[in-house]
């Protein structure tokens, strides 16, 4: 399995070096930076730094800028991971290499592991750029519990990876990337507490946030960065994330396996 993962990692890195997906990378960075800018403009120029009384109560801090900037950066990170992993198989299908991969006795686990490891480099880069820009516009990092934050970040990658498997099967099912991914991303931005705390939403919408790994991941990450919370303080969020990951993993593995079969049938049918 690790053998296949390593080969896939090397292959993707080679492809990336030769044809760097600049438009995706820049797109992710830009959308993160725009969230930063929006937060900055709204906070300083439009609302003159005045917040709703409930905000500090709901988030445990009155640092709106850090809250919103981390939201933007983490959202961009989630979108990037989801896209890079979920699009891998359908890209093989479009470029005509899927059959060649399916012909081999290699394990799909290894293939995806290589994919996710390779894309870590890209998302880490994107994330760092957005956080750096954020630091210029008012993100406070002085209280950060660095190790907890890093660990939460890594665990989140795992959770997004599991979700990406489900997204990838949906893409193969619909034979589409554009609509499927963007619809999910729009909903994610709405219900996961990216730019505002979830309790502000109408009650009937709030449960939607529960099924997005982004919501607990972001919550935990913010606590570690803004308030310097230790890992055990965010364990409820981590358990939530782990449970979601498990569910998505089971559905995703089953889905991908089914879709591979279905896709082969429909190519020749």
């Amino acid at each position: 399995m690790f053998h296949v993962a390593k080969a896939t990692f090397i292959r993707n890195t080679r492809v990336m070096i030769r044809a760097y997906p600049w438009s995706f990378v820049i797109g992710h960075i830009f959308s993160g930076v725009y969230t930063v800018l929006f937060a900055f403009f709204a906070y300083h120029y439009v609302f003159a730094g005045q917040l709703d009384e409930n905000f500090a109560h709901l988030t445990g801090s009155s640092d709106y800028l850090s809250y919103a900037i981390l939201g933007g950066a983490f959202y961009a990170f989630a979108v990037s991971t989801l896209m890079n992993v979920s699009r891998s198989l359908i890209t093989e299908l479009r470029e005509g290499t899927l059959e060649a991969v399916l012909l081999t006795p290699s394990l799909r686990r290894g293939y995806f592991l290589g994919n996710v490891a390779q894309q870590l480099m890209r998302t880490l880069f994107e994330f760092s750029v957005i956080v750096l820009v954020g630091a210029v516009f008012g993100l406070t990092l002085s209280h950060t519990n660095v190790w907890s934050a890093v660990l939460v970040w890594i665990l989140s990658t795992g959770a997004f990876f599991c979700q990406a498997l489900v997204l990838g099967s949906l893409m193969l099912w619909f034979r589409d990337t554009y609509i499927t991914q963007n619809t999910l991303f729009a909903v994610m931005a709405f219900v996961s507490g990216v730019t505002f705390p979830i309790p502000y939403l109408p009650e009937w919408v709030q449960p939607l946030g529960l099924i997005m790994p982004l919501a607990p991941a972001l919550d935990a990450f913010r606590q570690c960065v803004i308030q310097g919370a230790p890992l055990h303080a965010v364990s409820p969020q981590l358990f939530h994330m782990a449970a979601l990951s498990l569910v998505y993993l089971v559905i995703g593995v089953w889905g991908i396996r089914r879709m591979e079969k279905r896709v082969m049938e429909s190519i020749f049918g």
Binding site: A7, R11, G96, T97, P105
Partner: peptide, 24 residues
């Protein structure tokens, strides 16, 4: 012209597929 990675070289293609068959 399907079933090959166009961005990889001939050797790299074979390396990748070889690895998927467990060769190393």
């Amino acid at each position: 012209e399907r079933m090959l990675y166009w961005r990889l070289t001939g050797r790299e293609n074979l390396q990748y597929f070889g690895s998927l068959y467990g060769l190393q």
